[in-house]
Nucleic acid binder design. Structure first.
Lengths: 342, 342
DNA sequence: AACAATACGGCAAGCGATTGCCAAAAGTTG
DNA sequence: CAACTTTTGGCAATCGCTTGCCGTATTGTT
């Protein structure tokens, strides 16, 4: 008995390498490498033998070594401003799903709504990823251009000339929302704006401003507010100050926060004020009242972003990469909007 | 002009390596390596010079190469059963925050509530990560033991003898919930159970069963239900069949789904039936009615898990690793619970 | 002043794969 | 059957960085 020599610490036994396999199989390491990652390059019998031994040894290739020599890492980074914002769940879901299907690993990073964190992360990731998907980037045009020149990139909800983009057509739906409100007799609307550095925020406001002008409605812009339920209180109070009868919020988080604040202050929704959110996040359907909001196939946006990135990484198989994909949106009418108070 | 030779594709220019820096600085690569990752090992003047050159060149070390030679990857994987379940947001937030502070990169993986995906991921990750945090693992005890023997591991909400664990004391709060219901005169409670493979699920039921027995209440177990709002409909219908006056749900997702279903069916909450959730997720405070639920410092659980893992990875600095941390919980009473119908 | 200790930098051997190049073996063809 | 092509496998260089081992240069100790 030599039970004393037992090793307890994890990963004590050295991991098998292609060399171990090569020795056992009586071939060179190059053959093992080919058998495992380029099967048709090697004789079927040899390959089977190698595969069997690899399985016996519980061989797992080292992504590090593979990446070092091949130049590819098999990792795609997905950067989102705030991981706890439910809007990004579905995007993340979509990218994760599609990346997995393409044999890539997803590296998820929360950039904390901060430009410098985003920039810094991007820099660090340049070496260790094959590409990145940038959701709702807070970067300036110049920064984005520079970044796109340095690493394969796809943006979501942020148009650039330099990188493929997936756009969710919320501005289009904002117009629908406005018409919906107009049909209820609302003459005035306030837009509870999001972060100044958000590109979508500007687009949404522009769309509302224009559509309101066309319809002879008064549109007021408030904010910026942080895109969180907490900020909803400030936004609600601000909206009340304008005496507008309806509000469109930058996103559902903000809208839900406003809903809560209105309730606290005894303002009835939709009797006294109508409110429209944006994104149709988790919770929009069960808040009180359920929120009229702008819905879109967000998970699909994530999937599309991945496929655009894949096309960029492998231009041969991917064909001419699409430079722009626009996801359709539609207004989902629930109970937070109603006739204007008379 | 030789504008023709311009390269357009991203990452066209070769990335600078320590060799480039070494040449420019007139030192050996080993010195550069030390200056950058072991600063006190090299003379201050040399180091500064190297750092300056590195900055000029926009040098980014290759994590691949670093990992290959050092054996450490700087990556910690966090595995969660379902990335879109809001419960995990805060955990993820917590781990992300703490990992970043410790200089690690977080690799987030969704195991799709599937044991085999979990196992497979774990295997692949063995080579490419320094450790893993396993939230609400669906593995069997045996599988968990094997895994813990192979790679540094910390579990959340799943006790093992073989790995440090962070437990959220929901069973304790279940007792509180039961007493809360009892004080309202409820004589019967149904537990809308979660996935069979969930360890927490069993613990929660055990706690309820015992506490109910002590108090002379009738406790019925229903399920298993998928821990999603969608399954809430089935759970609600099931609960109605038992004629119990109160229900405790496996988690808030399920509880919120039940809330919606009860509303559809004209069952009033809490007048006809009281309902208690678990986790206090995003949405629990603004659903209709706001949900009485079990709350805990979840983000902190994530942070604690990371620090336990760090202690495991570096036993010298980390001191004797704690094997168990229990996060306190408490009942958060909102409007979904009330007096038993007479 | 003689000796020991310490600081600093270089050499070179890896880490575990991939891959271009080459030679031997096997298969084709007229 | 000779000449040629295709398969198949091996050799060895690389990828970029870390690190053990050594030789000097510098500083400190009696």
């Amino acid at each position: 008995m030599d039970g004393m020599s037992q090793e307890v610490s994890p990963s004590a036994e050295r991991m098998p390498t292609i060399r171990d396999i090569a020795e056992r199989a009586g071939v060179a390491t190059s053959t093992v490498s080919r058998a495992l990652s380029n099967p048709q390059r090697v004789n079927a019998r040899t390959r089977e033998k190698i595969e069997r031994i690899a399985a016996e040894l519980h061989y797992v290739p080292s992504t590090q070594a593979r990446g070092l020599s091949s130049g590819r890492t098999g990792v795609i980074a997905v950067l989102v401003p705030d991981i706890t914002n439910p809007f990004y769940f579905d995007i993340i879901r979509g990218t994760q799903y599609q990346l997995k299907a393409s044999g890539y690993t997803q590296l998820l990073v929360d950039t904390e709504e901060a430009t410098d964190v985003e920039l810094d992360t991007l820099r660090k990731l340049r070496r260790s990823t094959d590409g990145v998907i940038l959701a709702a980037s807070r970067l300036t045009d110049q920064q984005l251009t520079d970044t796109a020149a340095r690493q394969p990139l796809v943006t979501i909800n942020r148009a650039t000339a330099d990188a493929p983009t997936v756009l969710i057509d919320t501005p289009g739906a904002m117009v629908q929302a406005l018409e919906h409100l107009a049909s209820f007799g609302h003459k005035s609307v306030v837009y509870a704006g999001g972060p100044t550095s958000s590109w979508s925020n500007h687009r949404r406001w522009k769309a509302i401003e224009e559509a309101a002008a066309r319809r002879g409605m008064t549109a007021t812009r408030l904010g910026p507010y942080a895109p969180t339920a907490l900020s909803g209180a400030a936004a609600a109070d601000g909206a009340l100050g304008t005496r507008a009868t309806s509000v469109i919020a930058f996103n559902d988080l903000l809208a839900i926060g406003m809903l809560q604040r209105f309730r606290e202050r005894g303002v009835r929704v939709p009797e006294d004020v109508s409110i429209v959110g944006c994104d149709d996040i988790f919770g929009a359907d069960f808040c009180n009242p359920p929120l009229t909001t702008i819905s879109s196939p967000i998970e699909q946006a994530g999937r599309v972003a991945v496929s655009m990135l894949m096309a960029q990484l492998d231009p041969i198989r991917g064909g001419t990469p699409r430079k722009l994909a626009v996801m359709p949106t539609h207004l989902k009418v629930r109970a937070s909007t109603g006739p204007a108070p008379s």
